[in-house]
């Protein structure tokens, strides 16, 4: 019997909700009996009845940041460590104070876990830098998996009007400004019209390029837009100092299974998600020189090759069935 804990679930949309739904799907396919517990604050976790906890053999935490508040029990704890929750930071001074104060306690809880699953080596090293003593018998690095059941290789031609897309929350570290700058510069150096599709909760504008802002679309609408775009942009910045970094970039795989490769910055776990010049591209920075050099090296043949590689790699290596195998091993089924 397994307790699955998460901070986000339907009807709230977002990466953690998708992650939770994907884990649920895998648990169902494995025939694992589970209960879902969605928490909104650490108080919800503290108040979870200890008597109820006793029936669980495993506790699987989607967001491991607050698992320290779970009353202690004999269940084997499995933590999914996505990234920024290990930075012990909050914009609220009070919450930040609490996080810093309880940091050692939280890390001790992680150290006593049965398995910690880190979605990237960057996330693992970051957590170790915050005080976790790594242990390779407990700490596993396993890339993010997504549902690729709707996969389709939507090949686009570079001869068509260029379309770039960015799907993310509108928060500073997602760097929509950087993506707009990229598109504007590319239009200038390529001499071709560029359309930038933003999928977020806000509208963007530019005097130089066409921006199509799609606010809070359904998953199907979002996938249609991802399939339509030539390249998915994810220029996330490392804002570890204020509690944000990109652990892996799940959207890279969500775009990949539709035949849309990604262009990312070399920050966080992104270079582990996108394999440079193989399944996409990784830029060291967003300077004019970098962007010009990238475009100089681009041609239709290369674009098609990378699109195909990206698609094949995603459906071969990033489908939920790999989580099924991982959980089978971890849960001993």
């Amino acid at each position: 019997m397994l307790l699955l804990t998460t901070p986000d679930y339907l009807p709230k949309l977002g990466g953690l909700t998708s992650h939770t739904l994907n884990v649920e799907k895998v648990l169902k396919e494995l025939g694992v009996e589970y209960e879902l517990f969605q928490w909104n604050s650490y108080l919800d976790i503290i108040r979870y009845p200890k008597t109820k906890l006793a029936k669980f053999d495993y506790i699987l935490n989607i967001h491991s940041g607050f698992n320290m508040f779970m009353p202690s029990n004999d269940a084997k704890v499995i933590n999914f460590v996505n990234g920024a929750e290990m930075l012990f930071y909050s914009p609220s001074p009070m919450k930040k104070f609490v996080k810093v104060l309880t940091r050692k306690f939280g890390l001790r809880r992680m150290a006593h876990a049965y398995v910690n699953i880190f979605i990237s080596e960057f996330t693992f090293k970051k957590t170790c830098s915050k005080g976790l003593r790594g242990d390779y018998s407990r700490d596993i690095i396993f890339p993010m998996m997504v549902d690729t059941s709707h996969h389709k290789l939507n090949l686009k031609s570079l001869n068509d009007p260029l379309k770039f897309i960015c799907v993310a929350r509108d928060v500073p570290h997602k760097n929509f400004a950087g993506a707009i700058y990229f598109c504007e510069l590319l239009q200038e150096i390529s001499g071709r019209p560029v359309e930038f599709i933003t999928v977020t909760n806000k509208k963007f504008e530019s005097s130089k390029i066409a921006i199509r802002s799609v606010i809070n679309p359904s998953n199907e609408q979002r996938d249609k837009l991802l399939a339509e775009a030539h390249i998915n942009l994810l220029f996330s910045l490392d804002h570890s100092h204020v509690g944000f970094f990109e652990g892996f970039g799940q959207i890279v795989q969500e775009a990949g299974c539709l035949g849309t490769p990604s262009l990312v910055l070399s920050t966080g776990g992104l270079p582990e998600s996108v394999h440079d010049e193989d399944t996409g591209w990784v830029l060291n920075d967003l300077t004019e020189t970098s962007i010009k050099n990238w475009w100089k090296g681009m041609n239709s043949e290369k674009y098609e090759k990378i699109s195909r590689e990206c698609y094949q790699h995603t459906i071969d290596s990033h489908d939920l069935k790999e989580w099924k195998k991982l959980f089978k091993t971890v849960l001993g089924k």
């Binding site: 080596e121 690095i141 396993f142 890339p143 582990e272 790699h313 071969d316 290596s317 990033h318 790999e322």
Partner: peptide, 8 residues
């Protein structure tokens, strides 16, 4: 093969 990628 990609590092830290058992499936790959």
């Amino acid at each position: 093969c990609h590092a830290n990628h058992p499936k790959d």
